[in-house]
Structure formats: structure tokens, C-alpha cells
């Protein structure tokens, strides 16, 4: 049991920090610009493919640096020449622009790298098991992921709280008009945040592409979960995003271990659900099967009852 708990906890951390890296950029973008960026996960995918391509030629080290940079530049360009010109048509148009963009990026990836998964292996120097406790081992790569993501959290946190640009960004989070009125170049800040957010997603892709699978569907499978993180965490709150990421990872990890069905729960409190009817399967589903759906349930409930999220500063 201790072994199970410990490793589940470690895996929660790894997955949670990956979610965080993905969503930290999005939460900044969303709360500053009000853009629900559906292409964010596509930047994550681009990061993975760039990482794959660069590490195939130059090795993993340069990929870790260059791929997020390239994705960041791409993100900034999208903001400058795409989003900014749609801005005048309102948020719906902006959002739809990103939906279309996600579409195009996926097709472009299909076109360039093919429709099947690519071989993006763990780099040699990380391909060993770090430690083995009882019978379960923990791979060095997972530890490396943890290290990078914690570093990113610290870095972003420091930039936001200790630098001038960070202070402007923070101010824009809560009072976008006020910052503009003070004479700061808000469009430039937007471009920077969008580029930076994309770069973070790209970095998540470089390391997540190895951890998971690098394939054209990777954006679509991870896309919605990122929205759950920013909603649950709350608008504009980096700490909220962190907490929400870990929470979601914990739900997914630990729900697997609960072998109780909804029918059992009702039975325990005294209701016997009829075994017939069109919804009979509902009572049969075990909590352990629902892990990955729970986040959406969580998101819907959160939006209904506490739309500003766990640690949000304001409503959207």
C-alpha cells in the first residue's frame, strides 16, 4: 500500500506539473486578453514535433532550448498578424480564429510529419531508472520532467513578481484599461505574453512528446483538459493553475484505485437502483473508470457555482 501511495503521489506530481506547464501560458493569455485560445494545445504539439526534429539532428539539449523558442516566435507572429486584426470583431471571432488555426496546424503537421506517430525516444543520458523502491521503479526521465517543470514555475513566478515587465503583466491581469491609460504599450505586452505562453506550451511539448506520444492527435486529446485547469484554477492566477493542475492529476491518478460504482454508493445510503431501464449502465460505472471524465464534471460544476475558480481574482 505504501508503495502504491508513494508512486501514485510521484506520478501525480509528474503529470500535474506537465498540465501546469501547458496551462500556465494559457491562463495568462486568457486573463489578459480574454482570448480562449483553442490553438494553445496545437503549440504544445508543434513543440513536440520541433523537439523531435531538432533532437534527431542536433540532439536533445539544443532541442530543449530551440524548439520552445521557435514555437514562441510563431506564437508572437500569430498574435501580431492574426489575432490582432480579428480583435476588432470581438471575442467570438478571436476564439473562432484560434479554432481554425488549430485545424490548420493539425493538417500541416499531418502534411509534414505524416499521419502516424513519430519515434521520439527518451534521450540516452536519461534512459535509466533512477531508483527502485520495493518492486516499482521511477525513471530518470520522469524525475527530469519534474525538475524542468518546477524550474519553469519558479522562473515564471520570479519574472512576474521581480521584473518590471512582470509587474506590468500582473497589473494588466487585473486592470487592463488602467495599464493602458498609464501609457504602457499594451499590444506589445500582449504579443510578448502570447509568445511567451506559446513557448511554455512548446516546452511542455518537447518533454511531453517523449513522455506521451508524438502524433497529430496529441493536441486534440490534451486540448480540453487545459481549459479545465484554467477554469478550476481561476482567472489570472498562476498559483491557482498550479493547484488545479495537481488536483486534476490527483483525481485522475487516485480515482483509478476506487473500485466502487455509483449504484453501490446509492445502495449504501439506502436506495436500490433498478437494474433495468435505459440508464442502467449509469449505476454500473465504477469510479475507477471515470477518472478522466471527472475533470469535465468538475469544470462544469465549478463554472456554475464558483465561476471565478479556486483562486481567481475576478470573473471573466
Amino acid at each position: 500500500m505504501f508503495e502504491y501511495l508513494l508512486f501514485s503521489l510521484l506520478n501525480t506530481l509528474v503529470l500535474g506539473m506537465l498540465f501546469f506547464m501547458l496551462s500556465s501560458g494559457l491562463t495568462l493569455i486568457f486573463s489578459m486578453m480574454g482570448v480562449l485560445n483553442f490553438a494553445h494545445a496545437s503549440f504544445y504539439m508543434l513543440g513536440a514535433y520541433f523537439g523531435y526534429q531538432i533532437s534527431a539532428v542536433f540532439g536533445f539539449g539544443p532541442a530543449l532550448l530551440l524548439a520552445p523558442l521557435a514555437v514562441g516566435v510563431l506564437g508572437a507572429l500569430v498574435e501580431r498578424y492574426g489575432l490582432r486584426s480579428v480583435h476588432k470583431y470581438g471575442h467570438v471571432a478571436e476564439l473562432l480564429f484560434t479554432v481554425g488555426l488549430a485545424f490548420i496546424i493539425e493538417e500541416a503537421v499531418n502534411l509534414i510529419w505524416g499521419r502516424n506517430a513519430v519515434t521520439y525516444p527518451v534521450p540516452n543520458f536519461l534512459d535509466f531508472s533512477l531508483f527502485t523502491l520495493f518492486t516499482t521503479s521511477f525513471s530518470a526521465y520522469r524525475a527530469f520532467m519534474l525538475l524542468i517543470s518546477v524550474g519553469i514555475f519558479a522562473g515564471v513566478y520570479l519574472v512576474l513578481t521581480r521584473t518590471r515587465i512582470g509587474l506590468i503583466i500582473q497589473a494588466s491581469l487585473t486592470h487592463p484599461q488602467g495599464v493602458s491609460a498609464l501609457g504602457h504599450n499594451v499590444p506589445a505586452v500582449f504579443m510578448l505574453v502570447f509568445g511567451g505562453g506559446s513557448a511554455l506550451a512548446g516546452l511542455a511539448g518537447v518533454i511531453g512528446g517523449i513522455f506521451l506520444i508524438t502524433e497529430p492527435a496529441m493536441a486534440a486529446t490534451l486540448g480540453p483538459i487545459v481549459f479545465v485547469v484554467i477554469v478550476v484554477g481561476g482567472m489570472g492566477s498562476l498559483t491557482g493553475a498550479l493547484v488545479a493542475s495537481l488536483l486534476l492529476a490527483a483525481i485522475q491518478t487516485f480515482a483509478v484505485g476506487i473500485d466502487v460504482s455509483l449504484g453501490d454508493i446509492f445502495a449504501r445510503i439506502g436506495f436500490q437502483m433498478s437494474p433495468g431501464g435505459l440508464l442502467k449502465d449509469l449505476w454500473r460505472i465504477k469510479i475507477s473508470h471515470t477518472g478522466p471524465i471527472l475533470p469535465y464534471l468538475f469544470m462544469v460544476l465549478m463554472l456554475m457555482f464558483r465561476p471565478k475558480g479556486l483562486m481567481g481574482k475576478r470573473e471573466s
Partner: peptide
């Protein structure tokens, strides 16, 4: 198609 990390299942 919803599970990202199968580690929890592997732990089971």
C-alpha cells in the same frame, strides 16, 4: 482515448 498517463493503472 482520454487517459494521458497510464502510471496509475500500472501501479494497480
Amino acid at each position: 482515448g482520454k487517459v494521458k498517463d497510464f502510471s496509475p493503472y500500472v501501479a494497480q
